[in-house]
């Protein structure tokens, strides 16, 4: 009996320790998001937490924040083109890489994934030197190319993962029934890997919208990007409008995440 009690106590203690650590971690994961939302709803002039009262006044104040709105629009435009670029190039490359065993393709895969690990700031700086040597200066199209490099890995990874689960016999069946390659791709492959591409495109969009290190070097002087604008606000005059803008970004992110979960099974694509 003593042995059994020991085992039961052991099982309990493991669950207790792991559960406690996980609970702390989950609290810390959610805390910042909750704090941003609550702070942005404050009725006071200061960022004191918890807020003394709640109001929507700072969200209303955002309607007049012209500079912030322009920066937001710039970020949306760049994120849109970056997502388009990285989804098309990333999906095409994933199709080639998934169907090949050649060492050249392995090397290409490694190269395309490397922006995920290498310091983005160094890449942004290198890109600036490069376009300078070519006699060009920072511009929106070049910024989109730079964002494309650091966002492609997201599309490539999720698309490769969904291609690896694609049943090859489906493709054979389609071709043996007389469908040409394009038809097979359009009717069989694309619908099956669609959620993978969708999840990757979503991640690429968020990564571009949020990018600081590349924008810092490749955005021209007239094109201010939202994260950099907010950063400057935080470093200089920390006002509550920054909190409201942050709150708006958090709400938009949550809505997009729920949509991505509904249509692309985001959480299933992530692991």
């Amino acid at each position: 009996m003593a042995g059994r009690r020991r085992i039961r106590w052991e099982a309990l203690s493991l669950k207790l320790v792991f559960g406690l650590l996980a609970a702390i971690a989950l609290l810390f994961l959610v805390l910042p998001t909750a704090v941003v939302l609550l702070t942005s709803l404050t009725s006071s002039q200061s960022l004191r937490f918890p807020p003394p009262g709640f109001s929507l006044r700072w969200y209303v104040a955002l309607l007049d924040a012209d500079q912030m709105q322009r920066a937001g629009l710039n970020s949306l435009i760049v994120a849109f083109w970056t997502t388009l670029l990285s989804s098309i190039c990333g999906t095409a490359a994933a199709l080639a890489i998934a169907r090949s065993r050649s060492p050249l393709m392995r090397a290409a895969d490694l190269l395309f994934m490397s922006p995920l690990l290498l310091p983005a700031l160094s890449f942004g700086f290198a890109a600036l030197i490069f376009i300078n040597r070519l006699g060009l200066s920072p511009s929106v199209p070049l910024l989109v190319l730079g964002h494309g490099i650091v966002c492609v890995p997201f599309v490539l990874r999720t698309t490769l993962a969904s291609l690896s689960q694609l049943d090859a016999s489906l493709l054979e069946a389609s071709e043996s029934l007389g469908a040409d390659r394009l038809t097979t791709f359009r009717r069989i492959t694309l619908p099956l890997i669609g959620p993978g591409i969708g999840a990757g495109a979503f991640l690429a969009f968020m990564a571009s919208f949020d990018n600081v290190p590349v924008s810092l070097f490749l955005a021209d002087e007239r094109t201010e990007m939202l994260p950099i604008h907010l950063w400057q606000q935080i470093e200089t005059n920390l006002d509550v409008r920054t909190a409201a803008a942050s709150g708006a970004i958090v709400i938009a992110t949550l809505i997009l995440m729920l949509l991505a979960e509904r249509f692309a099974g985001l959480t299933r694509q992530m692991h």
Partner: peptide, 19 residues
């Protein structure tokens, strides 16, 4: 778990300054 990585990094950091 993926909520923080998708929330803007500047927003996240701002929140930590408040905390």
């Amino acid at each position: 778990v993926i909520l923080p990585i998708l929330t803007s990094v500047v927003v996240r950091t701002f929140s930590w300054i408040v905390i």
